[in-house]
Amino acid sequence: MIDWARVSDLRDEVGADDFGEIIEIFLDEVGETIAELRGGADPASLEAPLHFLKGSALNLGFAEFSRMCQQGEAAAAAGQGNTIDLNAIIDGYDRSVAAFTAGVVERFSG
């Protein structure tokens, strides 16, 4: 679900202090887009938000969630936005955040 090697690399690249800030920015920005999707979205306009979510998720190691967004983005680009299971994508985000939060505490606190 989480690419912990990517998370560790990012933390090493930016340092422990800035890592916390990056997590906060990620959760704020991605959370806003997820909130928009939770409110319902026009299937014809899903390509751009799913592209944003895919890239953001990949940068922070949310591998499974990124794959889900990539599949949705491809479907939207092919004009098949009505086939995208937004509830599954949103659930994937929620599960990823929970796993990430628990894992960060376990791996990097102390």
Rank of each mutant, 00 (worst) to 15 (best):
M1N: 09
I2T: 02
D3P: 05
W4F: 09
A5K: 09
S8C: 06
D9N: 08
D9H: 06
L10N: 04
D12R: 12
E13F: 10
E13D: 15
A16N: 14
D18Q: 09
D18P: 01
G20T: 04
E21Y: 10
I23P: 04
E24K: 15
E24S: 13
F26M: 14
D28G: 06
E29T: 12
V30I: 14
V30E: 00
G31S: 02
E32K: 13
T33W: 02
A35G: 09
L37F: 12
L37S: 06
R38P: 05
R38V: 09
G39R: 11
G40W: 14
L46I: 15
L46P: 04
L46F: 07
A48T: 14
L50F: 09
H51N: 13
H51A: 14
F52C: 02
L53V: 12
L58A: 14
L60G: 00
L60T: 12
G61M: 10
F62S: 07
A63S: 12
E64R: 15
E64I: 09
F65D: 00
S66H: 06
R67E: 09
R67P: 00
M68W: 00
Q71E: 14
G72F: 04
G72W: 02
G72L: 03
A76N: 04
A78T: 07
Q80W: 02
Q80F: 04
G81V: 11
G81F: 11
N82S: 12
I84Y: 06
I84S: 03
D85S: 07
L86A: 07
L86H: 05
N87F: 07
A88W: 08
A88M: 07
A88F: 06
I89A: 08
D91V: 06
G92F: 00
Y93A: 00
D94E: 15
R95C: 03
S96L: 14
S96E: 12
A99V: 04
A99Q: 13
F100V: 06
F100P: 00
F100E: 02
T101H: 08
T101R: 15
A102I: 01
A102R: 03
G103D: 02
V104L: 08
V105F: 07
R107L: 10
F108L: 12
F108E: 08
F108W: 08
S109H: 13
